[in-house]
Amino acid sequence: MNTYKTRGVCSREIRFEIEDNKIKTVQFIGGCSGNTQGVSRLIEGMDVDEAIRRIDGIDCGGRGTSCPDQLAKALKEYKAAN
Rank of each mutant, 00 (worst) to 15 (best):
A72E: 04
C32L: 15
T36V: 15
L71S: 03
C10V: 02
I29K: 14
I29F: 09
C10F: 04
G61W: 01
D56N: 15
R41M: 09
M46Y: 02
D49L: 00
G31C: 13
E19V: 05
L71Q: 07
N21H: 11
A51D: 04
T25S: 15
F28Y: 12
N35H: 09
T25Y: 10
F28M: 11
I18H: 00
I29T: 12
V26C: 13
A51P: 11
C32P: 08
R53P: 07
Q37L: 14
I18A: 04
G34C: 11
E77P: 00
I43T: 12
I52E: 00
R15I: 03
C67G: 08
V39T: 13
G64P: 09
N35L: 10
E44H: 07
G34I: 09
G30K: 14
I23T: 07
T65M: 10
I43L: 07
K22C: 09
R12Q: 08
R15M: 07
D20N: 13
I43V: 15
R53M: 08
Q37D: 13
G31H: 10
Q37R: 15
Q70Y: 00
Y78M: 04
N35E: 09
R63C: 12
G64D: 14
E13S: 03
A51I: 01
E13I: 03
T25W: 07
I43N: 00
G31A: 11
T65D: 06
G8L: 03
C10H: 07
G8Y: 02
A72M: 03
Y78K: 02
A72C: 03
S40H: 09
G61Y: 04
M46D: 06
T3F: 03
D59L: 13
S40G: 12
E50A: 06
I14G: 07
S40T: 10
T25E: 12
E17P: 04
C67R: 08
T6Y: 06
M1Q: 11
D56S: 14
I55P: 02
R15H: 06
K76I: 05
L75K: 00
A72S: 09
G57K: 12
C32S: 11
C60V: 09
D47Y: 06
K5T: 12
